[in-house]
Design a protein around this nucleic acid. Structure first.
Length: 258
DNA sequence: ATGGTAGTAGAACTA
C-alpha cells in the first residue's frame, strides 16, 4: 500500500502537477492540504476521470483538505470533536482497507507572539486527545499532512538562524512530540536518517531547491503495527522544480499490508 | 536585506 501527502497550495492551480504525479506514482491514498477551494468548486470530476475517488472539505482562499484514494474510503469525517473549534477544513479522516488515515493541516501560527500560535500549540494537544479517543496505538493508524513542524535540527537547512520560528522551536517541537508519543513512528526518518531532506521550500527564496534551503514539515507517521511494515519512504523533489509548482512537494511511503 | 514570491482575490491576508 502506497500512501502520500502533498500541500498543494491551491488544488485548482496544481491540477496538472497532481494528475501527472498520480499517473506516475499510482498511490493508493494521497492526502492533500491547502486546497483553498469551496466544495462547490472542487475539481472532483477530474480525479474521478483519472480513476480515483476523493473526499474533501474546503473554504474560499484558505485551508482545505482532501483524501484521494484508488478505492473506497470508509467512515469519513471532518474536524475535531472536543467541543472547541471543529476546524473541518484542517482535518479529514477515513479508513482505507483497514488502515485508519488522519490527514491534517495544522495551523501555521504566523508569529510566536500571536494568539494563533497559542492556538497551534493547543491544536497539537487537542489532536493527542483526538487520537486517544478514537484509536488505539496497537491499531493501524496513519497521521499524514502538513504538520507545520520541523521536529529536529536536521529538519531545517539553518537551525541557528531559524530557531524561534513558529515551525522550529523547542515549544512547538514538544507539542508535536506529545502527539507522537501517543504511539507514532516518523516513517520517513525510519528509512532516511540523513540530513538535508526537505518537503517545503519557500517561494521567496529564489533558488531554494538547488541550494537546499528547505524545511521538513510534511510528515507521514504510523503506529507500530504499520510502521513495522513500512518498506520505503521518499520525498519527490521533481514536482517542486516544475513551473507553477506548490511551495511544498510530495512525500510518499510504502507499506507491506494487503 | 526583519527582504523575498505566490495564491486567492480583485485589497489584503496567509504562508
Amino acid at each position: 500500500m502506497k500512501v502520500a501527502t502533498f500541500n498543494a497550495n491551491s488544488i485548482r492551480a496544481r491540477m496538472p502537477i497532481l494528475l501527472d504525479w498520480l499517473a506516475k506514482h499510482q498511490p493508493d491514498v494521497l492526502c492533500v492540504q491547502e486546497t483553498k477551494v469551496p466544495d462547490d468548486s472542487f475539481p472532483a470530476g477530474d480525479f474521478e476521470q483519472a480513476g480515483y475517488q476523493v473526499v474533501f472539505k474546503g473554504e474560499k482562499s484558505y485551508n482545505g483538505v482532501a483524501i484521494i484514494s484508488s478505492g473506497e474510503l470508509k467512515d469519513v469525517s471532518y474536524g475535531l470533536d472536543d467541543g472547541g473549534p471543529r476546524d473541518e477544513t484542517r482535518l479529514v479522516r477515513g479508513t482505507y482497507e483497514g488502515v485508519h488515515i488522519v490527514n491534517t493541516y495544522v495551523p501555521q501560527g504566523r508569529d510566536v507572539k500571536l494568539p494563533v500560535y497559542k492556538y497551534k500549540l493547543e491544536w497539537f494537544s487537542r489532536l493527542a486527545k483526538f487520537f486517544q479517543k478514537h484509536y488505539a496505538s496497537k491499531e493501524k493508524v496513519l497521521w499524514c499532512g502538513d504538520l507545520n513542524v520541523a521536529p529536529t535540527d536536521i529538519d531545517v537547512h539553518d537551525p541557528k538562524r531559524l530557531l524561534g520560528h513558529v515551525c522550529f522551536n523547542p515549544e512547538v517541537q514538544a507539542a508535536f512530540q506529545s502527539v507522537v508519543e501517543w504511539g507514532f513512528v516518523d516513517v520517513f526518518r525510519k528509512h532516511h536518517p540523513e540530513s538535508g531532506q526537505y518537503t517545503f521550500f519557500d517561494y521567496r527564496s529564489r533558488n531554494a531547491v538547488k541550494e537546499g534551503k528547505g524545511w521538513r514539515v510534511d510528515h507521514i507517521l504510523a503506529t507500530r503495527p504499520l510502521a513495522n511494515r513500512s518498506t520505503d519512504a521518499l520525498i519527490d523533489l521533481d514536482p517542486r522544480r516544475l513551473p507553477k509548482s506548490s511551495d511544498h512537494t510530495f512525500l510518499a511511503a510504502e507499506f507491506d499490508v494487503p
